[in-house]
Write a protein that binds this DNA or RNA. Structure first.
Ligand SMILES: [Mn+2]
Ligand SMILES: [Mn+2]
Ligand SMILES: [Mn+2]
Ligand SMILES: [Mn+2]
Lengths: 218, 218
DNA sequence: CTTTATTTTTAGATTAATCTAAAAAACAAA
DNA sequence: TTTGTTTTTTAGATTAATCTAAAAATAAAG
């Protein structure tokens, strides 16, 4: 149905739309995909031809309903495969992304459906991101970043915003994983640095960290 | 490392080398891959550049050691995925091939190794074909085609030569699957048609069938 | 409301994988 | 061994995805 590349663009546009309001700019797509703006313009035209995006020159793009459906299917497959890799094949949460980037393009309705069943219909991937169901519905949780938690409040880790290998390994090294409970001990007004208590150990976390860690209050 | 297309060519050349002696012809590759001879020539040149095949104009190609190693890795992944689909995801043996054709190109040493372990190191795929181990070693069984079995001898099904969906469904419809025991009742000298007994039912099988079904004598 | 800076698009090339049609080589037969 | 057939290779085009460099449009300052 769609090429590898088309699917990657649709997914990138989808993710960017989630963060910003309104249309997605050519440059932001180029940045995310590590490609050049001119390549993006070319692809956008192709996607517009196929009615997957709405595009007005110089005005950015938005996904059409059809384009969004395709994007969500890719995201669904990506996250299901990530669960598979962690749950069944002993991958750690920092190892799954690159492989899932490949697996998300495998085309087989049956494969996706059976994988979903095999994993017992998971609702979140190893990074705490929601997995769209077979109809594309996404249950979004009311998570906040750790930086938004006040001093003396308690919370637990439910996901990460940045799922780069470096960041995930940093978290592993400090024993922070999904479900981990913590209490905010102090918060520096100047640069947002926080001290949190995990079990007994106190740990200082820069805003670089606290802005990328999703938690829920207890 | 290698493109999708390069991998497909290497695999095709590998399979053709198994059947025939000596080099593989341009046309036979074109047939197998459902492409044109001129495309094959182009790709062969590329593979020769990369030292994956030995190629002399007009003389056909053979895989180099390096090329064979790559091909066997693809075959290994293809067959491991087929086992996964049948054993874990409720696919039937006639449904797995197309999906495995896609999955075989996923690049991750860890994925292959862990999948192998997860499946408990299978030695055969759902069609009875041997699965190369992590070092590329292939345990080849001394199977023969049903057509080679004599009247009154007993045997059991260990694989298929043709794994097209049509053929596999034909077998399913007549309750022939891996491990199925049968006895040769009669054999027509003229066209090779056989009658075999399965459990109690007798079944006539044309040479089209008996040449594509692998068995072992009991 | 100009001028400048940034963003986006176009123009023109490149690489990979394919094709058709024509030429060249190899094989087979008379 | 000449001639005809088949196979294989080359020549030239096409499509997809990318790039660089230049032009055009928009946005931001002054
Ligand atoms: Mn991911
Ligand atoms: Mn994820
Ligand atoms: Mn197969
Ligand atoms: Mn098989």
């Amino acid at each position: 149905m769609f090429t590898h590349s088309e699917e990657n663009y649709l997914k990138a546009i989808y993710h960017l739309s989630q963060q910003q309001e309104g249309g997605v700019s050519t440059n932001s797509i180029a940045d995310k995909m590590e490609t050049k703006a001119s390549s993006v313009t070319d692809m956008i035209k192709k996607l517009a031809e196929k009615q997957l995006v709405d595009y007005v020159k110089y005005q950015g793009v938005t996904l059409t309903k059809k384009g969004e459906k395709v994007a969500i299917k890719i995201v669904r497959k990506h996250r299901l495969w990530e669960v598979f890799l962690v749950e069944k094949l002993n991958f750690t949460w920092d190892e799954v992304h690159d492989v899932a980037e490949q697996l998300e393009h495998i085309k087989s309705e049956k494969l996706t459906a059976e994988l979903d069943a095999f994993l017992e219909y998971p609702t979140e991937d190893p990074h705490g991101d929601p997995i769209p169901d077979k109809d594309g519905l996404i249950k979004k949780s009311k998570r906040v970043t750790l930086s938004e938690i006040e001093v003396d409040e308690r919370c637990f880790c439910v996901g990460v915003h940045d799922s780069s290998s470096d960041f995930l390994q940093y978290l592993d090294n400090h024993n922070i994983r999904l479900g981990k409970k913590m209490k905010v001990i102090s918060k520096e007004a100047f640069d947002g640095t926080m001290v949190v208590r995990l079990k007994k150990k106190e740990l200082p976390l820069s805003s670089r960290i606290t802005n990328n860690l999703y938690v829920k209050k207890i």
